[in-house]
Design a binder for these strands. Structure first.
Lengths: 132, 132
DNA sequence: TTCGGTGCAAAATCTTTGCATCAAG
DNA sequence: CTTGATGCAAAGATTTTGCACCGAA
């Protein structure tokens, strides 16, 4: 892969964040340093970085894909109320691959999983409504 | 919900299948009986049926959403080679919700999970290539 | 110089929606 | 009749791509 400052900038942007930005967010931010960068380039580089395993793509089926600098195996929670995506600290659950393979006539190679819930902020809002 | 023959036809179509058709597939099929039905109507009804829990929507982040008549809790495998989605017979893994909640400052309400792998057909193709 | 990367805009893909009309209750 | 459902087409949202040009090696 040939060096490019745009890709480097995207990489640095992601490396500096612990949340899970969308392509659009990356674009908006990188645009500050490279005002001419195009959304297409951002998408191309995010795909590229995902393919080589430098970043992780998170598809929730709700809204745009998100990208995560942290490629260590870990899971996410998606808040039903505000849509935010958070890292989850939890033990390894790769044993579910074995369970899945037990009665499947093929090969199980992995899984995609994320949790649905309500984040702390949104829970507080709920509580404030209940106690007016 | 007011009765409509189009919705009934969509419902029947899904009830008669054990695979996981896309909106487009439903559309193409229902069109045989109602040539004037529009894709919009199909989408509207699939959303509606999903909302009331009569069917289940499966978003994999690869290609279009799929719909499943079977609303009993169960999991799916997505074949990396051919993209097909298959039912999986496996024991309940709701305990992962507990694991996820252990260190999360919010409420875990459920999870979305599917497995990636290779289906039997595609595995056979692999084998045929290796033994020419 | 070479060839991959970029910018731009157009297109592709999937889904939703506004509106006049139709049909279920 | 009244109101929700439909058909149609247009628009939305997200992502990919063709192509001429630019810049890294």
């Amino acid at each position: 892969m040939k060096y490019s400052r745009q890709r480097e900038c995207i990489r640095e942007f992601l490396a500096g964040r612990k949340d899970h930005p969308t392509a659009e967010t990356v674009y908006t931010s990188v645009k500050k340093e490279y005002p001419n960068i195009s959304l297409g380039t951002v998408y191309r580089n995010l795909s590229l970085l995902t393919d080589v395993g430098e970043i992780q793509k998170i598809s929730t089926g709700m809204g745009p894909d998100r990208f995560d600098w942290n490629t260590n195996p870990h899971y996410h929670v998606l808040c039903k109320k505000c849509g935010s995506v958070m890292d989850l600290k939890m033990e390894n659950i790769d044993h579910i691959n074995i369970l899945a393979g037990n009665e499947f006539e093929g090969r199980i190679e992995g899984h995609i999983a994320y949790f649905l819930g309500t984040c702390q902020k949104c829970m507080e809002q709920e509580n404030n409504k209940n106690i007016p």
